[in-house]
Design a protein around this nucleic acid. Structure first.
Length: 576
DNA sequence: GCCGTTTTCGGCCCGACTGTTTTCAGTCG
């Protein structure tokens, strides 16, 4: 776990515990600080070493939280958190994972029954003790019992790469219903976050109940189903449906896409204009005595489309991937929104494998697959031997040259670039002889071993290597499994930009590395981005969309992306 | 606890739903 996430988790825990105690406002402050630390592109220990003032540079982190961050980095503890843990000695994170159980419930059940963890909770529910607690009843007890098992299993967020295909199947099913006039994803899935907590789908229809019923006929367990919303559990994920009328489609889509912080910025902007924004539309409340009197108070000025919602606030439509409260509203206001790269802009793939190393397909098969996918060019970059390449996966320098010869000789519809995925050792050196690298068109260099600690110097050294063209999956993270290297992205991006080395967005859904926040920093520093699939078989070329949307989350335009260039443009970049 | 064209104090987004209640607290998104 990167230390940013580790620190953020501690602050989130403080928020939960403060909320359990009934403290107002502080929980929100801690959560916002935690979110911003988690997403910050500079390693938190680097900032902590520079002192409290440096930590305070992170948005929503003030004096008090910065001091706790420094304390945590230096001592591994936050004294106040330890006190809070002593006050309420429970596994608050595990308990809150139970649907319907929040901080207050955790505190109440500890006080009344001494519930400390999921096992205690289950025992208390089975013994019928929970229904006897004041404020609780048999229904709550039953719900807790029903939801405990899912809480035990689903401690991880689902990968985008799993959730997106499920969402598409659900949307296809919904669109089969004649009364459905529009259907789309919402939530973090529509923002293409690398992991999602659940799958949100939204439908426009005048026949809410019929659509909900149709939804429950999808092959899945029904959690709940009302007149306009319902939830299923499918493939280990929760799928939430909402049905709205067509006139409120845009408002609902905007609202449920979030992020929450993005929506707060919009609401505050609305208030400045005597407008009110909610999931039903934008309303002019200038002549209204009490704007809070109801959800559709005032005159509706927008709501049918998402664009109308933004237009009512004097803004252009902001693409979902940007809606993370990272300055997108200010940029939109100033007319400075990026013209984001799109899937159709991508013309090739510069990081792929064949059965010469650990791929499943021959050189010819990969080239044919690339042509079928619609690419103009493909770089064949099999693994070199070196640190991290166990079990004979990597091929020797001589074999690399033999594969290159096969690539050159291939009769291919796409332009074929020879290449290698070399390994960046812990000291930053590259594991292939210089004279071999010189023979190859496209040299990808990636870290495959020693994937913890600070990797900044290592990546800077690789970026400065004259033969290296692309830094592959720079941090080496694996979602839900390995945090990967901590890096100072500004330093890495500066070195990449200065040395004409591209930084990869590895589109494999287990990686999505670089992540969006790092991409934005890299683009800001003038670095070139390569969106590659790391395909080990032709079917994996489809991963490209996950990479493209990650690029969009990083505010990247087509001009920032190496493989949005034509084959000659790429050849120029590679120095051919 | 944080923040500032309401600037060093006084606010802090908004609404639906559920289950428990006789008017609302907690949770969720």
């Amino acid at each position: 776990m990167s230390r940013n996430a580790e620190v953020a988790d501690r602050l989130d825990e403080m928020a939960d515990r403060l909320e359990a105690l009934g403290v107002e406002y502080k929980p929100r402050a801690y959560r916002q600080a935690a979110d911003n630390i988690r997403g910050h592109t500079v390693a938190i220990e680097t900032l902590a070493e520079r002192g409290r003032d440096a930590v305070e540079e992170i948005d929503r982190v003030g004096e008090a939280i910065a001091a706790k961050v420094v304390e945590y980095v230096e001592t591994g503890e936050i004294a106040e958190l330890e006190e809070l843990r002593d006050d309420l000695p429970v596994d608050i994170g595990a308990l809150m994972r139970v649907e319907g159980v929040g901080p207050k419930t955790v505190a109440d059940l500890y006080e009344a029954l001494g519930v400390r963890d999921l096992d205690d909770l289950e025992a208390a529910a089975e013994a019928g003790e929970i229904r006897e607690v004041k404020g609780f009843g048999p229904k709550t007890e039953e719900n807790i019992l029903d939801n405990i098992e899912f809480a035990r299993e689903s401690h991880e967020r689902a990968l985008l790469g799993e959730a997106q295909p499920l969402a598409e199947r659900v949307l296809d099913h919904l669109r089969d219903h004649g009364a459905v006039t529009a259907a789309d994803t919402a939530g973090s899935l529509r923002r293409w976050r690398p992991t999602v907590g659940d799958v949100d789908v939204l439908v426009a229809s005048d026949a809410g109940e019929a659509v909900v019923e149709h939804f429950t006929e999808f092959d899945a367990e029904v959690i709940e189903a009302g007149t306009s919303k319902a939830s299923l559990r499918a493939d280990g994920m929760r799928v939430d449906l909402r049905v709205v009328v067509e006139a409120e489609w845009g408002a609902a889509l905007q609202y449920f896409t979030g992020s929450r912080d993005h929506n707060i910025v919009l609401r505050n902007r609305a208030i400045e204009r005597d407008l009110k924004v909610n999931e039903y539309g934008v309303f002019d409340v200038s002549g209204v005595e009490d704007p809070d009197a109801g959800q559709r108070v005032g005159e509706r000025v927008a709501g049918g489309t998402e664009a109308s919602m933004y237009e009512a606030l004097d803004l252009p439509l902001i693409p979902p991937e940007l809606r993370e409260d990272r300055g997108e509203v200010a940029a939109a206001d100033a007319g400075d929104l990026p013209d984001l790269v799109a899937l159709g802009d991508l013309r090739g793939d510069l990081h792929t494998h064949t059965d010469a190393s650990d791929g499943d397909e021959s050189v010819a098969g990969m080239l044919a697959g690339a042509a079928e996918f619609g690419h103009d060019y493909l770089a064949v970059t099999d693994h070199a031997t070196g640190p991290g390449m166990v079990g004979g996966v990597g091929v020797s320098d001589d074999e690399l040259l033999a594969v290159a010869e096969e690539v050159r000789a291939a009769d291919s519809e796409v332009r074929a670039f020879t290449g290698v995925e070399a390994n960046i050792a812990a000291d930053g050196s590259v594991s292939v002889a210089d004279d071999v690298l010189a023979e190859l068109d496209c040299v990808v260099a990636s870290p495959h071993a020693a994937l913890d600690g600070d990797g900044t110097d290592r990546l800077v050294a690789a970026a400065e290597h004259p033969a290296v063209n692309v830094l592959g999956h720079p941090t080496g993270r694996l979602l839900n499994r390995r945090a990967g290297l901590d890096i100072d992205i500004d330093a890495v991006a500066a070195a990449a930009a200065a040395n004409d080395t591209a930084l990869e967005i590895n589109a494999n859904p287990h990686r999505l590395d670089l992540r969006g926040g790092y991409v934005k920093a890299a683009v800001d520093a003038g670095a070139t981005i390569a969106v590659n699939t790391d395909a080990h078989r032709p079917a994996a070329f489809d991963y490209l969309r996950f990479g493209v949307h990650t690029a969009r989350r990083g505010w990247a335009e087509a001009a920032d992306v190496l493989n949005a260039r034509d084959a000659d443009g790429v050849a120029d970049f590679l120095g051919l």
